[in-house]
Design a protein around this nucleic acid. Structure first.
Ligand code: SF4
Ligand code: SF4
Lengths: 135, 135
DNA sequence: ATAAATCGGACTGTAGCGGTCGGGTTTCTA
DNA sequence: TAGAAACCCGACCGCTACAGTCCGATTTAT
């Protein structure tokens, strides 16, 4: 529990790699997968999602690949996580990430309030780290 | 991902409940389970673990139950989590919570160092909240 | 025409988690 | 002394989420 999913880690690695290149440089999923020994198919999926969420732009065809869209300084880890996992996944408690009623004891729960505060502290941590600070 | 396990939540609720009572007061797993609509069997397991880890003392027999051992101010959420989940589970990355080799790409990983720093920030958050602050 | 790349859905195997069950031990009390 | 009430402990089960794979389609440079 509490571990980043592999998808997220692969996404971070890939974005960091792209951010480390020269501005506007294009990278293919294959070369990144090879370099870091990441399963190619899986990384491809992640890149597609990052593309749909607007972190990278994709080019199809022979010399296709991905380039970074935004300034790497502005790309925060929290945004990447939430892009790859669909639900607001940096959430410590399910009554926040899903509907409150999803937890059978949400009416009698006494720990929700303190945990929500704790949550916001954690959010800050993830929002402070940008992809650029990882190169 | 990132969600506290139910066991941990139930443990927190139970400890908070005990801490809210008068000093040295004894509580049974059953009454706590009833009060918060927690599955009894599961809570029992959690309490047993908290007992073995020295957070509470158990008394068997008809009027048995659990009482708090330490001063509630000193019982931190991080300690509770690590007691209930055996592995150091407040860990964002598996190469820290388990052996480094457990991650197939640990030799080529470029995000480990920044994530470790992020990790220590998160640890602080969990170490700052004590059970007493939740009553 | 071919090859190299993205796209996208379907599929699978596994491990972890939430929850349950059954049987045991201890201790109070009627 | 019997029974009830509590803790103790291991085994078990069903489900879901996750990691990873596969296949086929589309785009585009050469
Ligand atoms: S137990 Fe409390 S905090 Fe956890 S999900 Fe349910 S309501 Fe939210
Ligand atoms: S990907 Fe990197 S950070 Fe994540 S577990 Fe493997 S080595 Fe650690």
């Amino acid at each position: 529990m509490f571990q980043l999913s592999k998808k997220v880690e692969y996404g971070l690695i890939a974005l960091r790699h792209i951010a480390a290149g020269s501005r506007g440089q294009i990278f293919t999923a294959k070369e990144i997968a090879d370099k870091y020994q990441i399963p190619f198919e899986l990384l491809a999926k992640v890149m597609q999602k990052l593309c749909k969420k607007g972190f990278v732009v994709s080019y199809q065809g022979v010399h296709g690949g991905y380039i970074l869209v935004r300034d790497a300084h502005e790309v925060k880890v929290s945004a990447i996580i939430n892009a790859i996992e669909e639900k607001p996944s940096v959430s410590i408690i399910q009554c926040e990430s899903e509907k409150p009623e999803s937890c059978i004891i949400h009416t009698t729960c006494t720990i929700k309030d303190p945990l929500v505060k704790l949550q916001s502290s954690i959010n800050k941590v993830f929002e402070e780290l940008s992809i650029m600070e990882m190169v």
